[in-house]
Design a protein around this nucleic acid. Structure first.
Lengths: 207, 207
DNA sequence: TGTTCTATAGAACACTCGTTTAACAGGAGG
DNA sequence: CCTCCTGTTAAACGAGTGTTCTATAGAACA
C-alpha cells in the first residue's frame, strides 16, 4: 500500500473534526471537508485506512470512526526515583505488569511517540533540577542522550542518579543543572550511564 | 429541578457507553441500556440534562451527546507571569476571549472543579519555587489562601509577584519557598495580596 | 376543583447516513 | 493487447435516528 495524498487529508480531517466537535465525522462530512466528490470514494479510502489499521469503525454505526492513535496516553507509574538508587530498568515485563498506578496524560504534554513511563520523586536530592519531593517525572527509555537533553544519569563512582542536561566536551562530560544559577558538574564519560530521557515534569499542589 | 434517579442512570450510561465504544450513544441505545420504554422519554430527560448543563448536543446530529464534565479540561493560557508585574486579572471576559492558546489537560492533573487558567513563566525569578523559565503554572482564581497553600502573591512594597506557600503567623505572614533549602520571607499582612492559587506546574523538556 | 408541572407512552415523520452496485479511467506488468 | 490493481464517479436503497405530536397520570398548589 503506497501512501496517498487524499488519505492523509482524510486522516487529518478526522482528527481535526473530532478535536473541534467532540464526535466523529460522517462519510458526507469528510466529503465536504476534504473536497471529495463522491461518498463511495470516501468509503473506499476509509476501507483502506481501516485495513491499514489507522482507524477503527463499527459497521453500520453512524459517526463511529475512531483514530487508533489517541489523544490521551496511559503512562505507567513504575516506581520512585531518588538519589541513592538507579531508576528501575524497563523491559516489556515491568512495563506492562509492574505498574503501581496508571497516569492518564494528554499527548499535548508528553508527545505521541515512544514508550514512556513515570517515576515519583522521593526526597529533595533533585532540587537543582527544580524537581521537588513528590513531583512526577515522565521518562522515555534511552541509553544515550543528545547534547542538551535532560537525562537521568547514573554516576558510577558516586553511586547516584541525577537529572541533568548532558553535553559532550573534549575529554569530559558536562552535566548542567536545570537551575541556571548552579554550577555544572564535570566527569569522565566512563563514569556515566544514561538511564532515560526526561520528557516532562509534573507537580500537583492541590489536594 | 430535583434530582431524578432515571436521569442519573442515563448520565452514567452515556459515560459508560462512551468509555466502552469511543462514541456517544443514540437515543435508542439509551432506551435499551437504561430500560426505558420510550424514545420520547429519553428525549425528555436529555433535554432536561442539557438545560441543566450536564450534557451538550448538536441538534439533529446523530451521536452528538457529550458529557460536559470531561476527562480532559480545556485550560486557557492567559498570558505570562514574571516577577515584575502582577498576574492578569481574570474575569468572565478575559477567561473566554483573551486566551492566546488552549491547553488540554486531564482532570487527573488539575482536578475537576473551579475555574482554572494557565500562565507561562517568563524569566528565572521563580527558581526558589522550583519553577523555571518556560514552565507553565496552572492557577485557580482566588483572593485568599489557606495556610500551607502555594499561591501567587503580589508584594505591594516590592512591586513583585512571587510564588510561595502562605502561612499566617502572629503579627506577620510567612512566605515559604517550595525549595526547602531556602529561607522563608516574612512580611506584614497588609503588604500582600493573593492573586491566585497554584494548582499544578507543568514542564515540557522534549521538543 | 381546576391548573400547572413533571414524568411517561406510542406512533409517526422526515432526514441522515452507511452501504451497495455498476461503470470507467489510467498505469503496471506480462 | 489483455488483465489486474488503484482511484474515481454517480445514483439509489433502506435502515438508523433525531424530533415532534398527542395523550395520560400523579403530585403540588391555590
Amino acid at each position: 500500500m503506497r501512501k496517498s495524498e487524499i488519505r492523509e487529508r482524510i486522516l487529518e480531517y478526522i482528527k481535526y473534526f473530532f478535536d473541534e466537535r467532540g464526535y466523529a465525522p460522517t462519510v458526507r462530512d469528510i466529503l465536504k471537508g476534504c473536497n471529495v466528490s463522491s461518498t463511495s470514494l470516501v468509503q473506499y479510502h476509509l476501507n483502506v485506512l481501516e485495513k491499514e489499521g489507522q482507524i477503527r469503525r463499527d459497521p453500520e454505526v453512524f459517526r463511529s470512526i475512531q483514530l487508533v492513535e489517541r489523544n490521551v496516553r496511559e503512562v505507567p507509574l513504575l516506581g520512585t526515583i531518588s538519589a541513592g538508587e538507579p531508576i528501575p530498568v524497563v523491559d516489556a515485563d515491568t512495563w506492562s505488569n509492574r505498574a503501581e498506578e496508571t497516569l492518564r496524560v494528554t499527548t499535548d504534554i508528553v508527545g505521541g511517540k515512544g514508550d514512556i513511563y513515570a517515576l515519583k520523586v522521593k526526597g529533595t536530592s533533585m532540587l537543582d533540577a527544580l524537581i521537588n519531593d513528590g513531583d512526577v517525572v515522565i521518562m522515555e527509555a534511552a541509553q544515550t542522550a543528545e547534547d542538551g537533553e535532560m537525562a537521568a544519569v547514573w554516576l558510577k563512582n558516586e553511586q547516584e542518579v541525577t537529572l541533568k542536561k548532558v553535553y559532550r566536551e573534549p575529554g569530559r562530560i558536562r552535566l548542567q543543572p536545570a537551575n541556571s544559577e548552579m554550577k555544572p558538574l564535570y566527569t569522565g564519560s566512563e563514569n556515566i550511564e544514561v538511564q532515560g530521557k526526561v520528557v516532562a515534569v509534573l507537580r500537583r499542589l492541590d489536594r
